[in-house]
Design a protein around this nucleic acid. Structure first.
Lengths: 201, 201
DNA sequence: AACTCCAGTGAACAACGTTCAATTAGAACG
DNA sequence: CGTTCTAATTGAACGTTGTTCACTGGAGTT
């Protein structure tokens, strides 16, 4: 029952990643398996392994899309001339995107890759570029401080927001607090702005 | 090969949880399985299910111990009359404990319980009591602010620190920043103190 | 028409959590 | 001591999981 004509190599590859993305988005990473994916695309599990190294490979490609989407959400954030306001807008973009793609976001951080497997470099670069955008706001707030300080503040606020949003997204924020995630996020942003504004030269 | 005399019901139960704790601490939650655990205690996998509902049950008991240990680490934190200094001491206790029990801490947050299973109430209470301790420090800093404000700040600083420490503990902090976790933690504490100090009445 | 190639299959493997009939050691009793 | 009863333990089994691989049969080439 070989069906070589149904899809070209490239078509099948994108069919796999598209379908994987849909499955994870709808059912969550736990319901995702080699067999459920292959069933969904009408092929056998074995076929996946002729086009991808392993499941990790497929999930990584889905995760990359999720990160690219987040970058786009940042680019689409409501513009503002006030860097303080802009930080809040980025926070809203962040929160909105993750709320929309809850399961995909969880897949990014909950999926257990094999122990030794290193994190793909473009993961790091994708996140670094988001942090650069945030750091720019800090730089605009206090241009007298050096770039390193702005970058560190960008990292810190990104990590803080990422963390509470991820806790919320995985349903564990209620373990720690009984407040609305939106309020918490903006309070965090205000706090980082306050701290940055008060920094010594 | 039934060995009823080897261990009483209670002995076997604590043998299971003790061994599970050791296994998870040494090998991590990924290497933990019903068969590896039963092999380690010299019984069969089936035996586990006569004494525990399922693996979730066992891991939950290990996790409870981890939380109790964290509470103890807080109690053992270096005392200080200065609430600001005390917050830093708690942060050190937190960081030190989790560094020591890396794998157990990851098990607490990475272990995937069955979808619907609710979080055990004593998890929540254990965390709440830690937050109360932190909130007390905030209250001491500015006794003029009400309890709710102090509690919310306690929740926020706990969530912030928990998050970066967990990121570090699971090896993902480097995705976001290139700094030492110790420095970051204390910078976060300082920031929360600064923000709290500047709050309007 | 014959030949080569390779995408796709489906069976197989090891490991997973979990269940359960069967076994059998130890306790209780006459 | 012998018998009976109870329940702790086993080991096979089921349905999953990720992954591998010998085989097949249709598509492209000669």
């Amino acid at each position: 029952m070989a069906r070589r004509a149904d899809h070209s190599k490239e078509e099948l590859a994108s069919l796999v990643v598209n379908t994987a993305e849909e499955l994870i988005a709808e059912e969550g990473i736990d319901a995702f398996s080699a067999r459920s994916l292959s069933r969904a695309i009408g092929y056998t599990a074995g076929t996946l392994y002729h086009h991808f190294k392993d499941l990790d490979d497929i999930v990584t490609q889905v995760n990359t899309r999720t990160l690219v989407g987040l970058a786009q959400a940042f680019a689409d954030a409501t513009p503002s001339g006030d860097p303080r306001q802009m930080l809040h807008n980025y926070a809203d973009a962040f929160l909105g995107y993750i709320t929309l793609k809850r399961n995909l976001w969880n897949a990014l951080f909950e999926f257990r890759r094999k122990p030794d497997q290193p994190v793909p470099p473009w993961y790091i670069e994708a996140i670094a570029s988001l942090i650069r955008i945030i750091a720019q706001c800090f730089h605009d707030i206090r241009p007298d401080l050096d770039d390193k300080t702005a970058r560190q503040s960008g990292q810190l606020v990104f990590a803080s927001i990422h963390s509470v949003v991820s806790l919320d997204s995985s349903g564990r924020l209620s373990l720690v607090m009984d407040r609305d995630i939106g309020k918490v996020v903006h309070e965090l942003v205000d706090m980082h702005i306050l701290a940055y504004t008060h920094r010594a030269k």
